[in-house]
Amino acid sequence: MVSLDHLTKRFGNQTAVDAISFEIPAGQIVGFLGPNGAGKSTTLKMLTGMIEPTSGTASICGFDLKRDLMEVKRRVGFVPESGAVFESLTGLEYLIMVAALYGIPQNAARQRIGQFIAFFDLGFDTLTEKLLGAYSKGMRRKVVITAALLHNPPVVFFDEPLDGLDANAAVGFKALIQTLAREGKTIVYSSHILDVVERVCHRVIIIDKGSVILDGKPDELVAAHNSGTLEKLFTQLTGGAELERRAEDFAKTFRA
């Protein structure tokens, strides 16, 4: 469903993503992890056609990212980390606009939006009366998630989707992606909340400095490295082992 072959992105002399390759079949939820600046968002942006790879190839649903970009975009849903929206539109105006870009007629779009409103427990008045600029971060995130799923894409990329969501919405969201995966959708889930990843994802890919350093099932990886939890495994692999000492040094600054 999603296939990357030596996908690389360089910014000048700096290599952000260094020849990464993997395949994700349909119906799988993949946790895409890495420390800040590891190249996660850059990879997701390449796979959604937002930035052009420097070299390597990728295909989504059999369509090549370079040759069939429009076909790829039609089959992809994306929740960016920024959660950016057009703030001076109402939620409903925004979602209708997004639906139109995917060729979904207004009535069908309203029907689907209604289902999402019910799922996320959003008030219809809020959606029609308030501009997105007036929404709380969590409400805005719900609209962005709705916008990503509105056209029923077979592949969905989530970049920090839980950011701003309250506990109930987060639980609901986890249930949603598991349901979507059961229906055959491919989910790529990038997050720093590792216990959620551990519970939800079928597979974990960890990248650091632009390269894949680990790929496998979460429980198998944890057992193989004898680390107890995914979080501990992650810090072991990505140089976070000295965090406690660094925290102590930081606190010392204030004591002085």
């Binding site: 649903c61 995917y102 056209h151």
Partner: peptide
């Protein structure tokens, strides 16, 4: 799990869809 490419997401065809240009 199946890896075959799915078709483009289904869209009801009996309604008029605004063009991308008009929407933008």
């Amino acid at each position: 799990m199946s890896t075959s490419a799915p078709a483009s997401p289904p869209v009801p065809s009996d309604e008029r869809v605004p063009s991308t240009e008009k929407t933008l």
